[in-house]
Design a protein around this nucleic acid. Structure first.
Lengths: 256, 256
DNA sequence: CAAATAGTGTCTTTCAGACATTATTCA
DNA sequence: TGAATAATGTCTGAAAGACACTATTTG
């Protein structure tokens, strides 16, 4: 910023935040979308977000907008791991005015349906399987409007998916997709869902348990998973945040 | 952006870009700084950058500002690998007005001194060893003003260093620090300089040469490096961009 | 018992770290 | 020749991939 504050150089921008909030439900990756109530893109699906106010940072704004616009419970929003993705600043990304948007990603565990939908301002928020979004619909799509998202949100969503996929490789963030206590099978299915790859179960166990601080066993606890079979031991997230060495995606894995 | 365009919600921000441009020179990591000519922080060192204009993206602005403010040759700026780092939006990061800044990192090969310094607008641009910046000066610092940078640029610089370090682990970006043709010893010294770690030469060679598309041999070419010893073979950057598997930093390497 | 799910053990290959050795050049 | 630098080879141990096998539960 050498140029200082030449008045001719100062140009007013609007600054917004957009959020790509993911969850894993039923073996599919979902993202939280809201249906727009105003122009432009009225009626289209969009990522939640909104304007940054004069006295808050982008991250603060992101957390506030998420609480206002979606039905996510207060405690979930407050504890959310929010990561800045990148900033989108193409001049014509908004048809009306110059808007620069700071995008964030967040991961939450699957929630009881009513809490996730909420009421009031959140009446138009919905978890959407990412596979149902885009111009080449999977058969059985419920909503034809998902063919394209508002603004450049399809690009933001794609970038966010890629980021989440690589974060799983070298951080312990996958536990953020799980409830407070989870089985290793559930943790593995998070990886398989996000990467869309099958993983070898014994090798996955070995890797996770060999990483100090990734997960901690809950002594004595067990949970029956599929109604049948041996109950699985339960684990909690451990204190570690990084994975050394990383848990790399299979290079050419069959995509199930 | 569900909220639409409620006039009460629209707040004008200034949007700027800041650049952390690195090079390796003489076994030390350097960053390009400029000395500010105006308030605030007049006389302080700062990262190059400036305002985004109404019809350009942040990345376009970053490239333009770099060309205007520093003496970097046109062709270098045009071909530069520019990567968005993150956006800094704390409300009081600029003492005068609300400024949101999109930060970028870039890597360049060491340049002939005059070209890097330039004249005119670039008269106050300088390559500064990153070790000489900050409150705990290495002995022999030339410039006491480097104890602190303008605005939050010390934070941006620290984030950029961390990002560059990890990019070297899983991308082929290290070649961006090298001239068009380089020796493996030069490439290794890039890693050693950025990571501040000594690497085993035979193992480094093996790893680099075993990664398809990282580097390509220049047939027959060789260069004498230290005035003595066997001339080293020359290599060019290859077509690969990612490193699979990654070249990880030694966990507890001696720091030379 | 069969089906389903959790969990263990083992073999093999790949790869990284350590380090000895050879090759080529200049003073 | 000796110092300096590049390049090759080898041993070892850690970790990943493949996969056979055991354990515990429900119906």
């Amino acid at each position: 910023m050498t140029a200082g504050y030449d008045p001719a150089a100062f140009v007013p921008f609007a600054v917004t935040v957009d959020l790509a909030v993911f969850t894993v439900r039923g073996g599919r990756l979902h993202v939280l979308l809201i249906r727009r109530g105003q122009q432009p893109y009225e009626g289209a699906w969009a990522l939640p977000g909104g304007f940054v106010t004069p006295r808050e940072s982008a991250e603060t704004a992101a957390r506030r907008e998420l609480a206002e616009e979606t039905g996510l419970p207060e405690n979930v929003v407050a504890a959310l791991h929010l990561e800045q993705l990148r900033t989108y600043s193409e001049p014509d990304r908004d048809p009306r005015m110059r808007v620069v948007s700071v995008a964030f990603t967040a991961l939450v565990a699957d929630l009881p349906e009513p809490a996730a939908q909420g009421g009031g301002d959140a009446a138009h928020a919905r978890w959407v399987p990412v596979g149902e979004i885009g111009p080449h619909p999977a058969s059985g799509r419920e909503d034809a409007d998902l063919a394209s998202l508002a603004f450049d949100h399809a690009v933001i969503l794609a970038d966010a998916r890629e980021r989440v996929g690589s974060k799983l490789e070298y951080t312990c963030l996958a536990t953020a997709f799980c409830p407070p206590e989870f089985t290793l099978g559930e943790l593995q299915s998070v990886y398989e869902t996000v990467w869309d790859t099958a993983l070898d179960r014994p090798n996955f166990r070995r890797k996770v348990l060999a990483t100090p601080g990734f997960v901690e066993a809950v002594p004595g606890a067990a949970r029956l998973t599929g109604g049948r079979g041996k109950p699985a031991a339960l684990y909690r997230p451990g204190p570690a945040t990084a994975l050394h060495p990383p848990l790399l995606r299979p290079s050419e894995g069959r995509t199930r």
